[in-house]
Structure formats: C-alpha cells, structure tokens
C-alpha cells in the first residue's frame, strides 16, 4: 500500500494511480464461490450464448470490487470510504485487462470532515468506459 495521502495534498483534477486488473475465467469462478453468486452467464458459455450474450461476462460486482480497491489503495488506512457507486454500462469480458482510473472532482470541509469526491471508471484495453462511477472519501489532514 502507498503511503498515506492527506486532504491538504489533493486538488481537484488530481488523478489516482491507475489499477490494472486481469480477471480470468478462474477468477470469475473464485468470485462466484466467495460471493455465492452462481448465475450461469458468468461461467457457462452455452448458457451465456443462449441468453444472447457474446460469451461469459465478468460479474458487475467484481468490476465494482476492482473500483473499490482503486479507491481504498489510494486513500490509505486513515482514509474512510463513505460511498461508492457505479453503473454497468458495457460488458466486461474475462482474460483481458480492466483498467481502473479515478480523479478528484470536488474537495470541501463539511461538519469538520475533509471530504473528497471522486469520479471513477473501469475501462477495457480499447479505452471503452464499461463501468463509470463515483465515490466519496474522508481524508485525514496534516493540520491536527
């Protein structure tokens, strides 16, 4: 994990270090088991094709989890995640990179808390935004 980031050091437009994940079909099965989600479009190609999909697809929740890691890696142990959300706009396919990016869209102090709002997204290797989202984080301040 990177060293702690502080509210004082963050400006609007600041970009998070990208996180590159590579979900394999094996990871989809691991996710299915760990999350107890056995919907067949994520591991049974015949079933996926019969449902008019081009093949098995990555669970939306798994891509969402990658975005969670993007934000928690960035905010460090002393950051607090308040809210994270996303929309599943495009299909994410296994065995290719998922590139997670984020940037600061707002920073302000509210009720004594240092709040940072982020725009986050998961892209495929072509640069298509598959899963756009937002997150709200509370960061520590250097001035204590």
């Amino acid at each position: 994990m990177a060293k702690q980031i502080y509210f004082d050091d963050v400006e609007v437009g600041h970009e998070l270090a990208p996180l590159i994940k590579h979900p394999t079909t094996q990871q989809l099965v691991k996710w299915a088991g760990a999350s107890d989600d056995y919907y067949q479009i994520h591991y049974d190609k015949d079933f996926a094709l019969a449902n008019n999909l081009p093949g098995v697809i990555v669970h939306g929740w798994l891509t969402f989890s990658f975005l969670g890691q993007l934000v928690t890696d960035w905010m460090g142990y002393e950051g607090t995640l308040r809210k994270i959300g996303c929309n599943y706009r495009g299909m994410n396919f296994p065995n290719q990179d998922t590139i997670c990016r984020g940037k600061v869209t707002k920073k302000y102090v509210k009720d004594g808390e240092n709040i940072v709002e982020l725009e986050i997204k998961a892209e495929n290797p072509k640069g298509d935004v598959l899963v756009p989202g937002n997150a709200t984080v509370v960061l520590p301040s250097r001035k204590k």
Partner: peptide, 13 residues
Amino acid sequence: LKGLLNGGNELEY
C-alpha cells in the same frame, strides 16, 4: 422480457 442484468450498485457506509 426474459433477460436479467444488474444495472448498477451503490453502497453507502
């Protein structure tokens, strides 16, 4: 409408 997809998720902590 036979298909089912997850459109989006949000979690507030």
